[in-house]
């Protein structure tokens, strides 16, 4: 999820760049508001990071915009996503409670600043043992699909600054269907899910711990944000959910087994994915049926095709409302006709 309009995002990026120069502590104090809070108060809401053990050497830190997954071991620390820029120092403190080892890797599931904002602060604190050419780099490597690099490094809006500072751009990218890593004696797969939430989504599959970090391809608290301007699409999103369901294997009684770290919300398992996949598919099918019957967007919105799920995932205010979600699905399907 990203909680910012393009204009606000650019302004926010500029603020982050400026404040990084005077120190991360100042960043937290001075950042006017967390993104997405259009009528936000002058001070950001108090940050409350919560660390939960997922399984084995995998942890989840919630409360910093997007969830952050942390893998620890003798080789070092790998994190999936890095939260908001203004919370990066607090996130580092939380990571340090889990491990004092260096941070070798940051993996970004997509480009939105609530998942990449902390890159520029956290990467320089790490160390990455690269290949013969790189040697030992005095910063963590940042892995992502190549479209993430394109999007975070592109100027947007009237302020000619990239979305996040260059220090936080991915240093290692892939353009294929998947990318393999081995770290802390664990095989890790980055699997690209094309044109879903954005055009650069990856899920991160920790194969020994049997944990999947989905980024915003799955949330337990909100409807999918379809970032159409960045290549997102409802059908790609549902395809991605189905692929993650195929990767997950429950233990007994459709519970446990492969554990899922969602982009926003709680730790989950395959059943929670199913509930979400079913809900989004049903809403998509209803809107498709309404389009087939010649209904306009306004008529579809008035018919409330998501009524039975709005109490779980919907919102009437804030960055991504139910109205916007229904419109995004409608427009995607209309374009596909």
């Amino acid at each position: 999820m990203v909680q910012v309009s393009l204009k606000r995002r650019t302004v926010a990026s500029a603020v982050v760049l400026t404040l990084l120069a005077v120190g991360a502590a100042a960043v937290q104090a001075a950042q006017p508001a967390r993104r997405g809070q259009a009528a936000a108060p002058a001070a950001a809401p108090p940050l409350e990071l919560v660390t939960e053990h997922v399984r084995g050497n995998i942890y989840m830190i919630g409360g910093d915009g997007g969830n952050v997954t942390v893998q620890i071991g003798d080789e070092g620390v790998l994190i999936v996503d890095s939260g908001f820029a203004q919370n990066a120092q607090a996130l580092l403190v939380e990571i340090r409670k889990l491990s004092k080892e260096k941070i070798d890797y940051i993996v970004n599931t997509h480009y939105h600043p609530d998942h990449t904002g902390g890159n520029a602060v956290i990467a320089p604190t790490g160390e990455f043992v690269g290949n013969v050419r790189v040697g030992v780099a005095p910063r963590a490597a940042i892995w992502a699909h190549e479209n993430v690099l394109t999007r975070v490094s592109t100027s947007t809006g009237s302020v000619k600054e990239p979305l996040i500072p260059a220090q936080g751009w991915p240093s290692e990218t892939y353009f294929t269907a998947s990318q393999e890593l081995v770290f802390n004696d664990e095989p890790i797969q980055l699997i690209h899910m094309p044109n879903a939430h954005t055009d650069g989504d990856s899920v991160v599959f920790f194969r020994r711990a049997d944990v999947i970090a989905t980024g915003d391809l799955f949330n337990t608290t909100m409807y999918p944000y379809i970032d159409a301007a960045a290549g997102g699409n409802i059908n790609g999103y549902i395809d991605a959910l189905n692929r993650i369901i195929d990767l997950a294997i429950p233990a007994a009684n459709e519970e446990g087994g492969t554990m899922i770290v969602s982009g926003h919300g709680r730790i989950a398992d395959e059943y929670d994915l199913l509930v979400y996949r079913d809900a989004i598919t049903i809403i998509r099918d209803r809107i498709a049926d309404m389009i087939a019957r010649g209904m306009t967007l306004e008529q579809v919105q008035a018919a409330r095709p998501s009524l039975d799920y709005d109490g779980i995932y919907g919102a009437t205010s804030g960055f991504w409302t139910t109205t916007q979600f229904v419109a995004a699905v409608y427009n995607n399907l209309k374009q596909a006709k």
């Binding site: 429950p250 007994a252 009684n253 459709e254 059943y271 199913l274 009524l307 039975d308 709005d310 109490g311």
Partner: peptide, 26 residues
Amino acid sequence: LSAAGLLRAESWSDQKWTVPEHQCEP
């Protein structure tokens, strides 16, 4: 049931139980 609860109930199909991922729900 709320309005949401009624819509959810009336949309339900027992074909759900033919989907492997739903079969072992207690």
